[in-house]
Every structure is written in C-alpha cells, then in structure tokens.
C-alpha cells in the first residue's frame, strides 16, 4: 500500500534529463504545466503526448514506473470527469431523467482527464529524475531574487529539504508501527467506516509522537553544529548550467510554439 507512492520518489540515473540543471527542469515544468492549460484541441494533446513520451523515453526510466504515479489519482480523475460530463451546458447528446450529457461535456471531460494525467506525468518525471536535494537547491536559487522583498527563500528550501528527507523515514516508521499493532491483533480491514477510523488511532499516535521526537532531535543536532540559515553559506555542489540546459530550454520553447501553432490551426479549421 505504501509502496505505490511514486510522486516524490527519486529514480537514480544518468540520462540527459537526469543531468539537466534542476533550475532548468523546474522552469520547464512550469512552462509545461502552463502549456497544458492552453491546449484547445485534440491535435494539441497529440503533440503533448508525443513530447511527454519523448521526455519519458530519454529519461530511461521504465514506463511502468512512471505510470505507477497515476494510480493514486485515478479516483480523483474519475470524479472530475463525471462532474464535467454531467454538469456542462450545451447541445444535448443523451438524456435520462435529470441526467444530461452534452457534447461539450464529453469534450471537456476528456480534456480534463488528459490534463490531469499529463500534469501528474510531468511532475512525477521531475521528481523521478531530480534528487530531492537538487530540487530544493534549484527552488532556493530560483526564489533568491525574492529575498530582497523579505521572502525567506533559504528557510523555505530548508523546510522542504527536511520534509522530503523525512518522507521515507516516516513511511518506514508507519510500516513498522502497522506491523507491531497487527502482531497485537489490531484489525484494519473489517468493520464500518467509524471502526476503521478508530483502528487508525494505534498507528497515528505513535507516528505523531515519533515525528515530534525526530523533529526535536534534528533541531538539537542542527543547533549543535551551529546552523544559522542561509547567509554566506557555500555549497558542495554548486549549480551550473551547461550546453544541455540550452537544449532543454530549446525543446520546451519549440514545444510551446508547436502547441500555439496547433491552437491556431485548429481554430482556423474549426476542429475541436
């Protein structure tokens, strides 16, 4: 159950995408997400699919592994699709009692599903190819101009690093606690919703306690090493752009141009 979480999991590798500067990847993903919401036609989605497939292919991560990230959002996607399907006004395609499906609803539902899928695919590709530390370094660097207006960029990045650092630890801890309570006969599977929620108490309380304890220990350990925020800190791995990043930006700009082109084209031809 806990192993299905791909989002935020790093898949080590040495591919072109792995080796991009994290700042490049973050900026590209921001552009990618914006573009997803700009697409107005199926032609555009086809271009998006091809571009995403190329990215996944060049990352050399098994496709199965990338697609696993979609599993947890399936329910959410299905509900979104249903809402769009039934609650969009337009030309009626099918009617039964108070349920109405419109042609516009069908298109919108499909668009919504595609958007969510590519959104998750793109972001999980980012986290799969970028180690959490590189990711937060990139974010800190990109946010640093905002330090002038008082945004605590370094502290935010540090908080993110620590939070990400503790995801696997806490998952492991949860797994251990579940095992221990199962051994004592705790039952998480049967019963109604209320008794199931109650069955979570023996897991959540020890988990919270250990999370607080770890936070406390970490704070003390940081104090002991005289940690005091971002001023004048240097890095072991300084971020450096290379020719690869030029390619990366080139690719995403080309992609954006193609999408805009498909929007214009489909507008002219009157396609959906």
């Amino acid at each position: 159950m806990l192993k299905d979480i791909t989002l935020g999991q790093y898949f080590p590798g040495k591919s072109f995408i792995h080796n991009l500067d994290p700042r490049t990847k973050i900026l590209c993903i921001v552009i990618y997400i914006t573009v997803i919401f700009l697409i107005k036609s199926f032609l555009g989605y086809a271009a998006l699919a091809i571009f995403t497939a190329l990215c996944v292919f060049s990352s050399k991560i098994p496709v199965k592994f990338v697609l696993r990230g979609l599993k947890p959002i399936m329910m959410f996607v299905a509900i979104t699709a249903l809402f769009n399907l039934f609650l969009t006004n337009g030309r009626v395609a099918w009617q039964w009692g108070f349920l109405t499906i419109t042609y516009e609803g069908i298109t919108l539902a499909i668009f919504m599903v595609l958007r969510l899928f590519f959104l998750v695919l793109g972001t999980s590709l980012l986290t799969l190819t970028t180690s959490p530390i590189a990711l937060t370094d990139g974010i800190e660097n990109l946010l640093s101009p905002l330090k002038r207006i008082g945004v605590p960029a370094h502290e935010l990045a540090m908080m993110m690093t620590i939070a990400l650092r503790f995801v696997p630890t806490l998952l492991e801890e949860t797994d251990k606690i579940i095992k221990a309570q199962t051994a004592r006969g705790a039952d998480f599977e049967s019963g109604n919703l209320i008794s199931r929620a109650k069955a979570m108490i023996p897991i959540l309380i020890p988990l919270f306690i250990s999370a607080f304890r770890r936070a406390d220990d970490l704070a003390v350990a940081m104090e002991c090493r005289c940690y005091r925020g971002g001023e004048n800190r240097t890095r072991l791995r300084a971020l450096k752009m290379s020719y690869r990043d030029g390619f990366g930006f080139g690719a995403i700009i080309l992609f954006t141009a193609i999408i805009i082109l498909t929007n214009i084209l489909s507008g002219r031809l009157g396609l959906v």
């Binding site: 801890e173 251990k176 606690i177 095992k179 221990a180 051994a183 004592r184 006969g185 020890p206 306690i209």
Partner: peptide, 17 residues
C-alpha cells in the same frame, strides 16, 4: 494465527499509544 505467535519488535516502546 497471529494470536498464537507473539512478536516483540525492535524498540517496541515506540508502539505505545
């Protein structure tokens, strides 16, 4: 079957709740 076998895991004090 789990009632038949009692398991005390490592550092079991962290399971108290």
């Amino acid at each position: 079957m789990r009632f038949k076998t009692g398991l005390v895991m490592q550092y079991p004090e962290y399971q108290l709740f």
